[in-house]
Structures are given as structure tokens and as C-alpha cells.
Design a protein around this nucleic acid. Structure first.
Lengths: 114, 114
DNA sequence: AGTGAGTGCAACCCATCGGTTGCATTTTTT
DNA sequence: AAAAAATGCAACCGATGGGTTGCACTCACT
């Protein structure tokens, strides 16, 4: 009898790759760059970073599959933009977990005080 | 001239392993179990899951190194408990990123309207 | 004291990840 | 038309990750 907001196994399977995409320092710094610096190309992004352009491309593909980033071709360049919706999803998942904990604490407290 | 709330490289290096720990369906379901079911032992947790006890142990160690979980010995058993503080950290990191995006949007809007 | 439950430790396997190098392809630009 | 910029594709490499099996160890319980 789980609440509709609970973290069902189906949701976990959606959440896992999302958090996994966030679980890399290089990718996080890419997200920061795309947030602060607006839409950018791969070469521009790899200019900031220590690793090669192809490595950055791979990271962007991971972020893209996680839905955190989107790309559009513009002539010979490919422009990458941040996708805020998916970040909101991640936030929701954390909130659900946190809420689950609070509920458990409350019922434990009720049990003790009973 | 970054704001004190900004996502500095140092913060990214702290955030990455945290999100990485959350980036696995098995680990997420462990966290859910520890949230809802209260403190539990490894054997109890592995009873719910499809994978072996040793696999669960490894996952718990990963969660522990990320600070998401804590263990205390109690006789011959080891009790694992959820650690809500670290989840709050993760939430903060997401909020910072989200805020970074909002600020960029606002200044872009100001630029266009100028 | 001895049996069994709960863990810990270590080796091993295969898949994936992060990264590289090299070269082909497509658009600009002059 | 030719050179240069931006990207795509593919092979390869070492390290890490998730998982397993097997066995040793510690502690509770009768």
C-alpha cells in the first residue's frame, strides 16, 4: 500500500542512470559551463577542459542520453544546451527519498510515544 | 567573481562521488529499504534483493564511503542506517546548478530586453 | 563444548567506462 | 578550388564496477 509519491522500482530504474550521469566531475563541470556560459560547441567546451575533444563528446552523449542536455546542428557546428527539466526530475527523486525518511521517523516517534 | 553559492571545482569533486553512489538501481533500492524499514542487517537486505549477500555488502560500502549510510556493530550483526545529512548535500548541489541556470536565463533576458 | 547464523576476506570474471590516437567527412572561408 | 575549422567514426587500452564463489572467522544459543 505505497503512496503515489513513493519510489517504486520503475522510478528507481529511471533515476539510476540520471544520477549516474551526474556522478562524474568532468560531466558536472560541463553542465556548469552550459548553465553559466549558455549554449556552446564541443570544441569550445573542450578548450576549457584538460581532456581531449573526443572525451568531451562522449561525456556529452552520456548527458544527452540521460536527458540533461540537448544538441542541435547549426551549419558545421553542433550546439549543446542545458536541459533543466531533467534536473528537476533528479530533485524530485531526492525529495521523495527524503520524504520517505521523514515519514518513517514520524511513525517511529509515534510508536515510541505510544 | 563567483558567488559564494556557486559550484566551484572543489565542490564538483565532492559532488561527483555522491551522485555516482546514487547512480545504481540496486543501491537506490537499498536506500529506500533503509529509509522505510529502518535499520537493517546485510542478510535481511539481501533477502529482499535478487543478488548475493556479498554484492549487497559491496554496495553498502559504496554508500558508506559516500556518506549516505552508516554502520554500527551490534554483537555478531552489523546494523546499517540511513544518513539523511548527505542526501541534503546532494539536494544542495542540484539546487546550486539550478540556480546557476536561472541566473543565466535572467541575465540573458536582461540583455535581450536592453 | 559444539552447532549454526551473521559476517569478513580474497580471488576471479566479464562488461563498461574514461580516455587516447588516427583518420575520414562536412562546411566555411578566402 | 583549396585550405582550414568543426565534427564524426572506429579501434584500442587500462582501470574500475558489479557480480560471483569459496572459505575463514566471530559470536550466540542450547
Amino acid at each position: 500500500m505505497s503512496r503515489p509519491e513513493a519510489l517504486s522500482p520503475a522510478r528507481l530504474k529511471d533515476a539510476a542512470p540520471l544520477f549516474a550521469a551526474l556522478g562524474d566531475a568532468t560531466r558536472l563541470s560541463l553542465l556548469v559551463s552550459l548553465c553559466a556560459g549558455g549554449p556552446l560547441t564541443v570544441t569550445r567546451l573542450s578548450g576549457q577542459s584538460a581532456v581531449s575533444r573526443q572525451a568531451i563528446t562522449k561525456h556529452l552523449e552520456v548527458l544527452s542520453e540521460a536527458g540533461l542536455v540537448k544538441s542541435t546542428r547549426h551549419g558545421r557546428e553542433r550546439i549543446w544546451t542545458f536541459e533543466p527539466k531533467r534536473l528537476e526530475d533528479a530533485h524530485q527523486y531526492l525529495a521523495r527519498l527524503s520524504r520517505e525518511w521523514d515519514v518513517a521517523l514520524a511513525s517511529l516517534k509515534a510508536f515510541v510515544e505510544d
